[in-house]
Design a protein around this nucleic acid. Structure first.
Lengths: 262, 262
DNA sequence: ACGAATTAGTCTGCACCATACGCAGTGATA
DNA sequence: TATCACTGCGTATGGTGCAGACTAATTCGT
C-alpha cells in the first residue's frame, strides 16, 4: 500500500494512472524513470515481438534499469498491460470526429480506422477483457462511434449494441486475418502440403458443403481476398443496422429493456 | 524425430493426430497413458481455471505422472492446445444438421449453439490463431453452418465470408460477455465505486455522445441485458445477409474475386 | 530362445518468468 | 539539521516449458 499508484478510492490501480490522477509525490529523490517511458518502451517491445516478447526483465533491460525498479511505477504486469492498451489505442484520428455524410459512412470509417490500430498492436487483443471499458482512450473511440450513429434514430441501448457488434467483429477479424497471413507467409514448411493432404481428408460425405468449396480452391486466400472478406462483412453489418433503421423510423422502442431488478 | 507423433509429411504435428493418422507403434513397453486421457484432463483443467491453470506439470500431476512423460504423446504444449481445441469443439449437435425452416433460422441456431461451446471452453478463444482451421471438428462446425446457408443463393465466397462474420462476432462476444460478467460478480472491490467515480470523469465535453448514456445508466448491464445485446447483434447480422439475398436473387457474382496472381 | 532394437516413463538441469522483501542512498520538509 | 518518504537495486522464491540422458519394459529378427 506504499506504492505511488494508489491514489483514489476503489479504482483499479492502473485505471487511476491512465486518467492522470495520482497524488504527485514530493519527498525523496526525483524519479529518473517515468511511467510514460515505461509504457512506451513496453508497447514498442510488444509491437515488435508480441506479448511473448514482453517480460519485465526484457523491458527493464531495454530501459537500462533493473527488473524490480519498474515495480515502483506499476503495481503488476497486468497493470502495465492495461496502461499499454490505453496508450496504444490513442485518440481517434481527427477525421473520425468530423460529421460524416451518413451514419453508414461513419461506421465504415470507424471500423477501418480501428482495424488499423488493432493491426498495429495485435497483442492488445490477446489481453483478456476484465470488465467494461473504463480507460480514457477506449471510451474516446466508443464515443466517436456513437457520435457517428447519432442520426440513426436508434435507442441508446441499440446504439451501444451496434457499437459492440462492430468493434467485436473488427477485433476477431484482426486476430483471424493476422493468423491467416502469418500462416501464408511462413517458410512453406506447412503450406502447400496441407492444402493437398487436407483435400483428401475433407471428404464430401463428411463435409458435404465444405468439400466442394475446398476443391474449387475457395480457401486459397491471398491478401486481396482477405480485404474483400472484411469489406463484405462490414457491409453486411451496416446493412443489418440499416434495415432496422428503415423499418423503425423514429422514437422506436421495439426491444424494451428487461425490467430493472433490485 | 523419434516420437510417435511424426506420422506423415508436411502436416503440423498435432493436426495429424487429430485426424487419427499416426503410424501405430509396435515395439517397446505398452503405453499406460493415452492421448485421449491427456487431452481430456487438460481440457478439464482449463475449463476449471483457464489457460493459466494449465501447465504441463499440473497436468502431469493430475494424471499421476511426471511432467516429461507427457511429451511422449505430444510434441509441445502448443500441440496439446491444438488438440484440446479440437476435442473441446466436439461434433456439432445433431439438431444443427437437420434442415432448418430457413437459412435465417439455421444461422441463428448455429450461432447460439457455438456460443454455448465457446462459453464452456473460454480458454480456447485465448489461444492465438495460427492459420486456417484444419482440425476435423472445427471444419465440421463450419460445414454445418455452410449447409444451413445453402439456399441463400450466395456465392461460395460470400457464404464463407458470412460464416467468418458470424463466428467472429460470436467469439468476440463470448470473450466480452465473460469479462463483463466476471467483473460484475466480483467481490465489489471495484464495482460500485468506479460507476460513480467514472461518472465524474466522463464529462459531456470530452465524451458528448457517451456521457448522457452513462448518466442514464445504460451501462449498468445485468445478465438479461447481455443476452439482449447478443440477440440484437445476431439479428443485425442476419438482416444484413438478408438484404443481400433479397437484392441479388440468383446466380449473382457482384463481387468478382480479385484475379489470381502467380 | 536369445540378443538387439525400440520405446515408456523418470530424472536432472537449464533458461526464463513474475514478484516478495529488504537495503542503501537521496533530498524535500519539519 | 534531522527526519523519513521515496527511488532504485540485489537477492531470493517458486513457478514455467522443455532438452537430453537414463532405466526398464517389450517385441522382433534371428
Amino acid at each position: 500500500m506504499t506504492d505511488p499508484a494508489a491514489p483514489r478510492d476503489g479504482l483499479p490501480p492502473g485505471v487511476a494512472l491512465a486518467w492522470g490522477l495520482q497524488a504527485t509525490a514530493r519527498r525523496g529523490p526525483k524519479p529518473t524513470l517515468s511511467l510514460d517511458q515505461i509504457v512506451n518502451a513496453a508497447i514498442e517491445l510488444a509491437d515488435a515481438g508480441g506479448l511473448a516478447a514482453l517480460s519485465m526483465s526484457k523491458l527493464a533491460d531495454a530501459l537500462g534499469f533493473t527488473t524490480m525498479s519498474l515495480y515502483r511505477y506499476v503495481t503488476s504486469k497486468d497493470d502495465l498491460l492495461a496502461l499499454m492498451i490505453d496508450v496504444a489505442c490513442g485518440e481517434p484520428p481527427a477525421p473520425l470526429l468530423d460529421p460524416a455524410p451518413s451514419w453508414r459512412e461513419a461506421i465504415d470509417r470507424w471500423a477501418r480506422a480501428i482495424l488499423l490500430v488493432y493491426r498495429q498492436h495485435l497483442w492488445a487483443l490477446h489481453v483478456p477483457i476484465s470488465g467494461p471499458p473504463i480507460m480514457p482512450h477506449q471510451l474516446a473511440w466508443l464515443d466517436a462511434l456513437l457520435r457517428g450513429m447519432a442520426d440513426t434514430g436508434l435507442s441508446a441501448q441499440d446504439q451501444l449494441s451496434t457499437a459492440l457488434l462492430v468493434d467485436g467483429y473488427v477485433r476477431s477479424w484482426a486476430l483471424l486475418s493476422d493468423g491467416l497471413l502469418q500462416a501464408a507467409t511462413r517458410p512453406s514448411d506447412a503450406d502447400a502440403p496441407p492444402s493437398a493432404l487436407l483435400g483428401a481428408l475433407i471428404t464430401a460425405d463428411r463435409y458435404p458443403a465444405l468439400a466442394p468449396m475446398i476443391a474449387a480452391g475457395e480457401f486459397d486466400d491471398d491478401e486481396d481476398d482477405l480485404e474483400d472478406i472484411f469489406d463484405f462483412a462490414l457491409a453486411r453489418i451496416i446493412d443489418g443496422v440499416d434495415s432496422l433503421v428503415q423499418h423503425q423510423p423514429a422514437a422506436r422502442s421495439p426491444r424494451p429493456r428487461s425490467p430493472r431488478r433490485r
